[in-house]
Design a binder for these strands. Structure first.
Lengths: 152, 152
DNA sequence: TTTGTTGCAAAACGTTTGCAGCCTC
DNA sequence: GAGGCTGCAAACGTTTTGCAACAAA
């Protein structure tokens, strides 16, 4: 049910946001939304930019600009795991989840824990309005543990 | 008790690590450790670099290099909040805590929740060896909420 | 003496910005 | 038609790298 979101629904959400903020409905913006909609898992700007080159002529600046808008209307989430480039993921059709980040190879796996979700979501602060949160567990993934035993 | 850690203890931990990894015990490395030990709260590379200039002649490269080593021996923690440059904090004498990051002004506040700590710490994975974790709550701080009401 | 580490400066990298032309409204 | 948005390329700020000199082992 939750993940049966079609592109039409997203388009509508995005359009509403653009109209509300008096931004323009450009074809580039919808094309980027569509590519993100199709892609599964995390991606970085470089990946998305290259993906766009196949069918469109879209600049890096526009990719950054559009991601910013999609973040603002909660269709995309931005992450800064290890290293300096940002990673993104679509939020629509995704349940809130948490991340296992391997500090050796940089791989990212997701998991979701109901208890964690409910306890963090219920956390209230007198002087802070929480919009979202990120929980990153750092460590070494299975593949790297094996290599570690060999190399050290 | 826990926070009565003296510089001598840290120095020993660091020395043990350096010896074990067959790295050299240079005066620059100890000087950086000492400055971090003195500083309270988060800091970035720029801040630390400038702090070092007062009493020593240490290059940026060495600051980065040394931070890397301190992270590896668990004396320093690195944070990559969204939209900010990397921030660091000492871990010695600090209890694990969580972060409130204001997406407007970039301010960071800490909080610690026993329930969250214990539930995350108890989380086990078959194929992942967790070393540490970060929980970042993004939102708008009190100061910015006030300004928001005025400006929007 | 050996070679890991340093300072310095240049390069690399991801991201942002300035600008002329384009296209949404 | 006005002005927001685009592509392009240059600029930016942070981090990494190359290299000759230095100093820890």
């Amino acid at each position: 049910m939750r993940d049966e979101i079609t592109y039409e629904v997203l388009k509508e959400i995005f359009t509403n946001y653009l109209v509300q903020k008096q931004h323009r409905k450009t074809p580039e913006r919808y094309a980027i939304l569509e590519q993100i909609y199709v892609h599964e898992g995390h991606f970085d700007v470089d990946y998305l930019f290259n993906l766009m080159q196949k069918d469109y002529r879209v600049s890096l600046a526009t990719v950054y600009n559009t991601l910013e808008l999609l973040i603002k209307c909660n269709l995309v989430l931005k992450h800064q795991f290890i290293g300096q480039k940002a990673q993104y993921e679509k939020t629509f059709g995704n349940q809130t989840h948490h991340h296992l980040v391997c500090t050796r190879c940089g791989s990212i796996k997701e998991f979701s824990d109901k208890k964690i979700r409910s306890i963090v979501n219920s956390k209230q602060f007198a002087s802070f309005e929480t919009t979202h949160y990120s929980l990153y567990l750092y460590g070494i993934c299975k593949k790297c543990v094996t290599q570690k035993l060999i190399s050290e």
